[in-house]
Design a protein around this nucleic acid. Structure first.
Lengths: 117, 117
DNA sequence: CAGATATTTCACATTTGACTTATATAAGCG
DNA sequence: CGCTTATATAAGTCAAATGTGAAATATCTG
């Protein structure tokens, strides 16, 4: 689980939030980030590269544009890491949804290979 | 949400995993981390301080010992941040559990104040 | 083809953060 | 009390990460 290292940067988190809303071009992402964080265009490009290289985003080239989409896999890993702490705040659910939540967690755990933690 | 910065460090993540199993003294944590990561006692102490200072853990002094417990609040924030991506991997659930998962998310969202993202 | 535009890559400076060793604090214990 | 144990703090070092401006790459367009 080194997905957290990637998510440690606020700019990258923001980019992912933007991509959560759907595919965006590098330029569109850059416009928002520059306005919000005041960093240069290459800086944004480098963050996009980190997201690419670590499987958080996938690119589709179209002409001179690069369209980015979020790839949820590493985020799901983070979600799974959190499983061990869910008991701390999930205690106050009614019996049925607790049962289903539990089943969901087990399914999630079973369907994937254990990794570093 | 700068909780991710805290979780970006593998030693801190490991400490939290240990605390997820229940209260541990600084020394007990240190023993495991030193064995697994080969870092000094002060290094572990410094990580514990970061966890303390950022609300991931709470300490209880007893004699010369300091007992640490995990504080789930910041982890729940992380969980909430992930909400916006859950749709990407929760699509393949049967109708009932999907409904309940959705309800759970909404409850979670409603019961807490919006923060930075 | 010659710009213009969109994006990445490069080389470098600066900052941040995670270590280390040394030292402080504070109980327990003979 | 002085010694040992448990833990934290301080000061300094070093590497990794993040930013910058300049240049490269590739596509579109008149």
């Amino acid at each position: 689980m080194h997905a957290f290292d990637i998510l440690g940067d606020p700019v990258r988190r923001r980019i992912l939030e933007l991509l959560a809303g759907g595919e965006l071009s590098s330029g569109e992402v850059t416009a928002v980030i520059q306005r919000e964080h005041g960093i240069s265009q290459p800086a944004v490009s480098q963050h996009l590269k980190v997201l690419r290289d670590n499987g958080f985003a996938t690119v589709r080239a179209q002409g001179t544009r690069r369209f980015y989409v979020v790839n949820p896999a590493p985020l799901r890993e983070v979600d799974q890491w959190l499983d061990r702490f869910r008991g701390f705040w999930e205690q106050r659910l009614d019996a049925l949804s607790t049962e289903i939540a539990r089943g969901k967690r087990e399914r999630r755990a079973r369907d994937s290979h254990p990794t570093e933690s």
